[in-house]
């Protein structure tokens, strides 16, 4: 009883209702925030849904095995195998990783460990710019510079797997560098000091202690690099030659999955041909999701 009386004294009624409204309003806004946060989930869900709903029936019609292992592509006859495109995507990505990862990782070592401040001031913005240059500009550059150089050196026109690999390795550099720098910088000082104190040289310390300690971060960098390379479209179209064939030489013309989708989409007739492009999207999507899951696994391990 006493408490109620005091309550009335301090909490006059109009105030009470005002604070109730505030509370409701706060709750509504919190829900809006929450729904916004769910947009990422919703987006992923509907993207997956729509790509699959168009693509999966096509795969079923063509047959999964025929679709991903056959290398014949005659849309008029509804013979639709994307084996060559899958192989092209894998080769181009692997190639760009083989070139891009060492250069990127060593540049990251330079930034994180060796470079004096004034050089960092030059090289960091340079890496940011590399990341910012539109992919179509890379493709155009490849077309007017890299392709002619390859043609002059090896002959054969120049556009093909090698040109795609070179352009893609340029494009994944910023991803590899930025994430590796972060990983190297996160290595505890004590590791480095401990190694130096034992008489190891700076270079030995970097390769024997710091890079192993940063390996999950570097691995994440490579995964993201793979993601960028396998997903790149426009730059690849401009330099890869786009022939549907399994390459036997690094100079052969190839058509990775992304290029295939973009090229055929502009004239594909509605029906199985068009749907097969969505099916190619499904395969690409599955590749990327596997990469994401691997990445999520690595980063959550680092978190522990």
């Amino acid at each position: 009883m006493e408490a109620t009386e005091l309550n009335n004294e301090y909490e006059s009624r109009p105030n009470m209702s005002k604070s109730k409204w505030t509370e409701i309003w706060e709750k509504i806004v919190e829900i809006i925030f929450f729904l916004s946060a769910c947009m990422a989930i919703v987006s992923i869900a509907i993207i997956t849904f729509f790509i699959f709903i168009k693509g999966v029936p096509a795969i079923a019609e063509i047959g999964l095995f025929d679709f991903i292992f056959k290398t014949d592509w005659y849309p008029e006859a509804e013979i639709l195998g994307i084996g060559a495109m899958i192989v092209a995507s894998i080769y181009a990505t692997l190639g760009s990783i083989i070139i891009g990862v060492p250069i990127g990782l060593l540049t990251a070592v330079f930034i994180a460990e060796l470079a004096p401040d004034w050089m960092i001031k030059i090289i960091k913005p340079a890496v940011e710019l590399l990341a910012g240059i539109p992919s179509v500009v890379y493709g155009f550059f490849g077309l007017v510079i890299i392709v002619p150089i390859i043609d002059r050196t090896f002959g054969g026109g120049g556009n093909g797997l090698l040109a795609a690999i070179i352009i893609l390795s340029f494009m994944i550099l910023p991803t590899i560098i930025n994430i590796s720098v972060t990983a190297l910088k996160a290595v505890p000082r004590e590791y480095k000091e401990g190694s130096l104190a034992m008489g190891a040289s700076h270079i030995q310390t970097i390769f024997k202690v710091m890079i192993p300690a940063a390996k999950s971060g570097i691995f994440a960098a490579i995964i993201l690099g793979i993601g960028r390379a396998i997903g790149e479209t426009m730059a690849v179209i401009l330099v890869a030659g786009n022939s549907i064939q399994i390459p036997f030489s690094i100079l052969d013309r190839v058509r990775p999955m992304t290029a295939h989708i973009a090229l055929e989409m502009s004239y594909a007739a509605p029906g199985l041909h068009e749907n097969s492009l969505f099916a190619t999207g499904v395969i690409l999507f599955i590749f990327i999701m596997i990469l994401n899951i691997v990445l999520n696994f690595i980063t959550s391990k680092v978190g522990e």
Partner: peptide, 10 residues
């Protein structure tokens, strides 16, 4: 002032 701050006061 006699009011439980975890129950009676917002």
């Amino acid at each position: 002032d006699g009011l439980d701050i975890y129950k009676n006061i917002d």
